[in-house]
Nucleic acid binder design. Structure first.
Lengths: 109, 109
DNA sequence: TCAATATAAAACCAAAAGGTATCACAATTG
DNA sequence: CAATTGTGATACCTTTTGGTTTTATATTGA
């Protein structure tokens, strides 16, 4: 199935993969560097990264013998688009929620 | 695992379940009524509804011999909270994106 | 009452998911 | 060059997922 949104939702459904996205939000990382943050083999991490890339959430480029993984935030758009449909059910909509979120973690840098 | 956000993400990872949420966005539905919209048995639909309820995305109440399923939009908040972390990576943030979404489907009612 | 209907619950099954171990190979480094 | 390191690719294993079928039970309606 090549449904873009589906591949993104699928990629987000695993907690390890979501954590990887956050790690990559701080800086680009090689497969080995990502693996350092998890209690699983590199092979397993590699598979997760493939799924994240298939979901459009990261990009990767090979540099020498290493593969550099980069967060691709735009890949979250299909997810936000889908969630946007439910906007009409909130009094404080996505726009206000954004402010709420930013308030919640004022120094989360 | 009782992680709220995880259960919500999990519930959203299946396209049939996402479609069910949209159906329930229009009106409350019994299990049988939801089943009418899908090419699968009631038992299968029922399981999906259980997962949606575990994810906090719907509520259900029994009325006579029927079970009425209701959308519970607040259940999406943990998901939006998580996504909010990535807000800093967009120039047009969630707030602007919301406008974009509303533009895209002006008569999607 | 009796038949039909809606849900519930359990057993079962194939495929997908998440993980491991292993081997191969290219790129680096001493 | 030789040893090490990082990745890639398989094969394999176990658990979860998404589905079916079957059986049971509670409501409803004629």
């Amino acid at each position: 199935m090549t449904d873009i949104a589906q591949m993104a939702f699928r990629a987000l459904s695993d907690p390890s993969r979501r954590e990887m996205l956050r790690m990559l939000g701080d800086r680009d990382l090689t497969v080995a560097q990502v693996s350092d943050g998890f209690d699983m083999t590199r092979a397993a991490v590699k598979k997760h990264l493939i799924i994240l890339e298939e979901g459009g959430l990261i990009r990767s480029r090979t540099q020498g013998r290493e593969r550099i993984n980069t967060l691709h935030p735009d890949g979250l758009r299909p997810v936000l688009d889908w969630l946007g449909w439910f906007d009409r059910f909130w009094d404080d909509r996505l726009s206000d929620l954004k402010a709420t979120i930013e308030q919640k973690d004022p120094s989360d840098d």
